[in-house]
Amino acid sequence: MTNFFRITMCSCLFAMLSLAGPHLHAQRKDTEKIKASALKVEMIQSDQIAVPAAFQVAVYENLIQQLGKKASFLHVYRDGDRDAASIPNLVVLHTTVSRFKEGSEEMRQVTTVAGATSITIHCRFTSADGKLLLEKDVNGKVRFFGDNRKATYDFAKRASAVVSDKFSANGQS
């Protein structure tokens, strides 16, 4: 009886390890982060799609603010900052507007369901020498409350979450 119990226990343990092993290995691979000591945010580009200047500036400033809060392990440099040139492991964030739909705050407040503002921005993270590290589309939207620029705040929060997920100061999770 005791032998049977031991054999059953060992079999169960073996089965669990063999099933969970590859999954844990894959999970660990996913959480490996890109090593970065500083991040330089380039000004948002919108050559193809017309975006109001105030919107572009709001995206840029909100992004810098949110990165300072959510990715505090990184030193955030602004576009054109000369101090960033000598930093090792510098990551450069290039942003390009890929989709923009300007809604109306008045419409949102009157109808509740219409008038949403949404912006989708293609984020490219490169090294200082231009090597691509990560590419991702991030969107921001405002559906109910707030003015249209709140979509830029939403985008900045999501983009900062991506940075804190994918980058770390030592390259480990």
Binding site: M43, A54, V57, A58, R78, D79, G80, R82, Q109, V110
Partner: peptide, 23 residues
């Protein structure tokens, strides 16, 4: 909420002493 007033927006981009762009 339909009572709205029109406003002007002034957007400025400038560079600080280190060359960093501000909006």
């Amino acid at each position: 909420s339909m009572l709205r007033s029109k406003i002007d927006i002034l957007t400025i981009q400038y560079r600080d002493d280190d060359g960093g762009l501000h909006g």
